[in-house]
Each structure stands twice: as C-alpha cells, then as structure tokens.
C-alpha cells in the first residue's frame, strides 16, 4: 500500500477532471474515440499529436464548447451535462486560452479582464478591477492596462488572455496551442508565464508542440492520433522510450522541426 502511494502520490484525491469513455462525432465523422483521462488537482498535462488528431476537440469538450455524445466528463466532481446551469458553473471554474488570443477588441486590457468577473461572478467593479490589476501584474503587463488589444504585440496579447482567464479564479486552465500563432521571439514570454502558473500549482491541460515546455513542466505527456489517446507517460519516459511506433514517428518529425 505504502510503496504504491509513493509512486502515485495523489491517487486517493478526487480527480479534478475525469473523462470516461468519451466519444464525439461531428456529424458522421468520429472525432474522439473512447477517451479516458483523469487529471489530479495540480497536475500538468501536455497534449500533443498530429494535426486533426482531436486535441482541440478533447479540451473543448471539457468546457462544453463542443458537446459530446457518449461517456462522461466530470469537472471537480460535477458531471457535465447539457443543462445550461451546469455548463455555466463549469465554465466559471475552467479557464481557456486560445491560439488566436480572442481578446475583445472594443475593450481595454483592463476591461477585458473585468468583464466576466463582473457579469458572470457578479463581482463589484472595484473588486474586479483590483483582481484584474493584480493578475495583469502577475503576467507582467500591468502598465498596459489602459491600452486596447490591437496596440499590443502578440505575446502581450496572449499574456493578457491568460490574465483574463485567471481573473475568474479558475481551478483548471486549458491551453489550446497558446504559442503557435506567435512570432518566435514572443514564444518564451508566454511559456514563462505558463511555467510560473504551473509552479504555483495550477491544474493545466496544454495542447502544445513546445517540447521543451513539456519536458520542464508536464507531469504527463499524452499523445493522440486519429481521435484516440495512443500513449501517455511522464516526459522523461515519453521522450526517451516511446512505446508506440506512431509516437516515435511523431517525435521524430516534431524534434526535427525545432
């Protein structure tokens, strides 16, 4: 018993996210096949795989941006259903960062960060502003608070997007290729922000092909292909001893590129 809990420290704790037998179709096309995934509180997962393998679809099911047809998803013990109150409750606890930032162009950086806390959590203006300024400071962009998104660089915009999601005080953060729309010189500032967040104990699922980040931050790397989870392992094992041919092939391609 003891030795077992030493190798799997938080096994007893309730999973933060639990996907069981999840299947998803886009019409006739099956995008996810029998997804089983359990993420403990504080765990960092990196999700990778070739284009079209279903990575985005998987994380978008967690906050119900995509409905799924079979299986069960639990977030913090709540079973995700089509009930809009449940969906809203889960979305308040799950932050998401997108490839293309999706900041609201008509609102300043500060207003971007205050909107949802005020409208969704019913925070007071003063409260929302204090939280927003604190988190903008944390992503090192406090001095840009009064600017509009179009006046920022891509890296700055993505850091604002991270701060905006954090303003909801989420329990989980989902990242969908947060650095792949960025110029190379801006990738680091965003990855550093994410690494900082990971060090503070945030539960994270990151779709990314930044393998350096995966090595340094991930507790587990998951490889997907054709809508299914093919392989999952801690990064040391994943990168040195991949078990499946498709994983080896994928790693070969991705590491050659970088």
């Amino acid at each position: 018993m003891n030795s077992q809990s030493a190798t799997a420290p938080a096994q007893g704790a309730e999973a933060m996210i639990k996907m069981a037998g999840v299947e998803k179709w886009y019409g006739e096309f099956k995008a996810l096949t029998d997804i089983n995934l359990s993420v403990r509180q504080g765990e960092k997962i990196v999700l990778c795989g070739p284009s079209g393998s279903g990575k985005s679809t998987l994380i978008r099911c967690i906050n119900h941006l995509e409905p799924y047809q079979k299986g069960e998803i639990r977030v913090g013990g709540t079973v995700l259903s089509d009930d809009s109150r449940i969906i809203d409750a889960i979305r308040r606890e799950v932050g998401m960062v997108f490839q293309h930032f999706n900041l609201f162009p008509h609102l300043t950086v500060l207003e971007n960060c205050m909107l949802a806390p005020m409208r969704s959590l019913r925070a007071s203006k003063a409260q929302a502003e204090a939280t927003a300024r604190r988190l903008l400071g944390r992503v090192k962009i406090a001095e840009q608070a009064e600017k509009y998104p179009a006046q920022l660089s891509g890296g700055q915009q993505q850091r604002v997007a991270i701060a905006r999601a954090l303003c909801m005080q989420p329990k989980v953060m989902l990242f969908d290729e947060p650095t792949s729309a960025l110029d190379p010189e801006m990738v680091k500032e965003v990855l550093d922000t994410m690494t900082g967040l990971a060090e503070e104990g945030m539960t994270m699922i990151c779709v990314t092909h930044e393998m350096g980040f995966a090595r340094q931050v991930a507790d587990r790397v998951i490889f997907m292909a054709s809508g299914a989870i093919v392989e999952e392992a801690p990064p040391a094992e994943f990168f040195t001893k991949p078990r499946h041919e498709r994983t080896r092939q994928f790693l070969g391609e991705i590491l050659r590129k970088h």
Partner: peptide
Amino acid sequence: SKGQIEAGLALGL
C-alpha cells in the same frame, strides 16, 4: 469571428 464568441462563453457568459 467564432473565437470571440467562444472566448465569451468560455468565461462563463
């Protein structure tokens, strides 16, 4: 863009 709407929904609006 759809992304704007999704960002809003993902924030719980």
